[in-house]
Structure formats: C-alpha cells, structure tokens
C-alpha cells in the first residue's frame, strides 16, 4: 500500500473535507470526529481504489456517508446550535438589528437542516466547495442531472420553507 500517497491525499484534501463535515454537522468537535472516521474508512478502502481515480470526489463520498450516518444518529437528541459565533465580527448595527439578524440566520440554518440530506450536501458541495456536477454525482452516487436537480430543489425548498411563518418552519 502506498502510504506516502495516502498521506499526501490527507494533506491535499483534508482541510476542505473537514470544512464540508463542519458545514454538514455545524459543530467543531463533532466535525473532528467525523473527519477521523472519514479518513479511517478511506484508509481501509484505499488499497481497493483504482489507480487514477478522482480521490477528491471519492473522499467527499466517504465524508458524505459519515455525515449522513452521524446526523441520523444525532437526529433524536439534536443539540441547540448557535449561530452567534459566526457573527461576532459583524460590528455595527443596532442591538435590535443584530438580534433580528441572528434570529433570521437561525431560521435559515434550521431550514437547511430540514432539507433532505442529498439536497443539503449537493448545495454545500456546489456552492461552498466548488465541485463540478460530475464530481457531486460521484460523491453522492447519483447521475449528473440528479446532482444538479438536488442543488436547485434544495434552494427552492429553502425558499418555500422560509416564506412561511417562522413558527411553522419544519424541524
């Protein structure tokens, strides 16, 4: 087994895979666990990967499965997530404005979490990881057309969810 190659793969793609997991689970410590699990699975499967495969898409596929399993397990006892962290540096604005913004962000985040897993993953991969639809198809195990459809369906669903009254956002 080519360990140096595996090492270099970790160096090349580790950061973005971690970012993807973080975007999916929205918790630093949990994303760390998921990253370890992802690379452990990758390590075990590595000898069976064909030479010249798209390692990046392959890693995303594993990471996506790890996140899916993880979120399913967590679904029952979902921890309350704070969006305050991301917005400390927002600076100015009235207190009311900030509170309102946070509420709005939490709402969006809740809506994102209510998306079917595939739509959520496809959206993240396309928008924040710059994957081509062919790569998203590889990562999600679907056709390119389906990858694209999932991204747009996800966005449309978010738009619908958020058009409702805040109280009625589906969990």
């Amino acid at each position: 087994m080519d360990y140096p190659l595996f090492e270099s793969m970790l160096s090349s793609y580790g950061s973005e895979i971690f970012a993807f997991l973080w975007r999916m689970v929205r918790d630093g410590a949990e994303a760390e666990d998921c990253l370890q699990e992802t690379f452990l699975r990758a390590f075990k499967a590595f000898p069976r990967v064909e030479a010249g495969a798209n390692y990046r898409a392959w890693l995303y596929a594993i990471a996506n499965n790890v996140a899916k399993t993880y979120l399913k397990r967590r679904a029952g006892s979902e921890a309350r997530l704070s969006v305050l962290e991301e917005n400390r540096s927002d600076g100015g604005g009235s207190v009311e404005g900030i509170v309102e913004r946070h509420e709005e962000l939490e709402l969006v985040q809740t809506a994102v979490r209510a998306l079917p897993h595939k739509q959520r993953a496809a959206l993240m991969l396309r928008k924040y990881h710059g994957l081509e639809y062919s790569e998203i198809a590889g990562a999600l195990g679907c056709s390119q057309a389906s990858a694209r459809a999932n991204v747009y369906q996800g966005l449309k669903r978010l738009r619908t969810l958020l058009a409702r009254e805040p109280q009625r956002v589906e969990q």
């Binding site: 595996f6 970790l10 950061s15 971690f18 924040y128």
Partner: peptide, 23 residues
Amino acid sequence: RLYTSGPGPGRTQQALEGAREMI
C-alpha cells in the same frame, strides 16, 4: 453568512492533526 467562513484555521489544523494521529 452561515457557510462561507468555514471552521477556521486553528480548528482545521487540530482536526487534521487528530486524523493524522489516528492514521
């Protein structure tokens, strides 16, 4: 606003170290 920034370099470094150690 929610997703662009990512987990931050310190956290990422720590996570990568953890994964390397496990490997």
